[in-house]
Each structure stands twice: as structure tokens, then as C-alpha cells.
Simulated assay, not measured.
Amino acid sequence: MPDVIFNGPEGRLEGRYHHNRAPGGPVAIVLHPHPQQGGTMNNKVVYTLYHVFSRRGFSVMRFNFRGVGRSQGTFDNGQGELSDAAAALDWLQAVNPDAGHCWVAGFSFGAWIGMQLLMRRPEISGFISVAPPANRQDFTFLAPCPSSGLIVHGDSDDIVPEASVAKLAAKLSAQKTITVDHTVIPGANHFFSEHLDVLGKTVDGYLGANMDRIRAAT
């Protein structure tokens, strides 16, 4: 799990990277929650997602948005952070030029950024969106959502109400060209305290069920 430093739009960005040496293996980036609310790449949900991807054979990166940790720059209300995510994906693809499949995962604010990146990068073919802030951010840009994926939420989330995420998931699921799975974890709060193992198993199960599709695209 080596530390990496790569160039972002506003200076250097720091990350952690796991490399899978299998030729043509899939790649993924994992995006952390709100930088102004304590979000970093070491968030426990982000850490859990990162390790699920690595165990499933992905080359995977998590990184700090601008102004967090050793990453240079200052918070930019999402626009700059989206550019940071694009730079991270550029770096990941440069290191893995033969990767045949690309995924994006995010938690809370990171889920919002990840879904925007999904709309801008056609090579992204799958997503994991954990507790997307559907009550705080506008997701109408997903019209239509270009890729299938998984939305995970906790039914005891007191920051993002379950109903708002269910409405988003239902809207995306109504599209005929993709499949969006929506899983609600009983008892889990916004940060999945005491439920990280269930979150990890949920995402791992989803990736496992889709590995044939992943391999077919690599």
C-alpha cells in the first residue's frame, strides 16, 4: 500500500495505491467525504471500500482532495474536487494503460463527486455510491445515468434521510439501459459505525456477482 504523490490541478495530491499485477486487471478510485467536515482518505468507510476492491483484484487508489493532509490547494465547493478526482483517474490509467474496466466509489460528499465523474468519463463502467447526500446536493445531472452500480445506505442515517436516497435510487432504477441495486443496511448510521463489516460484505458481494461482467470487459 505505497504512498503516492501525483499532480493535481492546484498542486500535488497525496494518495495510497494498491497495484494488481494481473495483465488487464480492473481499476478503481475511492473518494472521501466532505473535506470541511473531517473527511480524509483515511475515513473508515473509504478504507473499507479500498480494501474490498484490492481483495477483488483491482488496482485501486484512495487520495486526499485539495487542502486535505499533504494535498495542496484549498476547498473549492465540489468543482475543484471533481477536477482532483479526474486527475487521480488520469494517474491511475497512466499506471495501468491496459486496464479494461474502470470503477468509481465514493462515500457521502465523495459519492456526489464520484457520480459527477461518472457522467464525464465514459470509460467508467461501474460505481459504488455509499450514503449519497441526496438531500443536500443536486443529482439531477444523472439524466441518464450511464452505468450500472450499487447504492448503499443505512436506515439509521440522521444526516442523509433514507427516503431521499430511496427516491434517487428509484429514479435511476427506472432507466432501462442500466441496473442500479439499492441496499439498505439495518441499524447503520451515516458513518456505518458498528456496521463496517456488513458494508464491506455488501460491496464485496456485489463485486463478486459482477466479476464475470468485469472479466468480460478486460
Rank of each mutant, 00 (worst) to 15 (best):
P144K: 04
V27Y: 01
W112L: 09
G126Y: 05
G69Q: 05
R66S: 10
Q72F: 06
Q37R: 15
D157S: 03
D84R: 08
L31D: 00
V160H: 11
G78Q: 09
A88E: 01
Q175K: 01
V184L: 04
C145V: 10
L199W: 01
I5K: 11
C102I: 00
M119K: 14
L49Y: 02
P144Q: 12
A87H: 11
D158P: 04
N7P: 12
D204S: 10
D155Y: 04
M61C: 14
A169V: 01
L142G: 09
G205T: 12
I29F: 12
A209S: 12
Y50F: 14
G57I: 04
N42H: 14
W91V: 14
V130M: 00
P133T: 00
S125G: 15
R121D: 15
A166V: 13
M1Y: 06
V27H: 08
S108G: 11
T179E: 13
V203E: 13
M115N: 10
T40E: 00
P161S: 15
Y47R: 09
G200I: 07
V130F: 02
V152E: 02
G80K: 07
F6I: 08
D98W: 03
S173V: 06
G24C: 07
T202D: 10
H101A: 13
T74Q: 05
Q37L: 10
V184R: 00
T48V: 01
V203D: 03
G187W: 12
V45T: 08
V68A: 10
F139T: 08
E162L: 15
A170W: 10
F75A: 07
T48K: 12
P9V: 01
F192I: 06
T74C: 03
N7C: 03
F192G: 08
P133Y: 09
G57E: 03
E14W: 08
S147E: 12
D204A: 12
L82N: 05
E194K: 14
T183A: 11
V160A: 04
L172Y: 13
P35W: 12
D155P: 08
G106S: 02
L49S: 02
L142P: 02
D76Q: 05
V30C: 14
G110N: 14
E123Y: 11
K176Y: 00
R215M: 01
F53P: 02
Y17K: 03
D181M: 05
Q93N: 11
H190A: 01
I178V: 15
G24H: 05
R55M: 13
I151M: 15
A86R: 08
V46K: 04
Q175G: 14
F141D: 03
Q37V: 04
V45P: 06
K171Q: 15
V198P: 04
F107T: 12
V68W: 09
V104C: 01
V152Q: 07
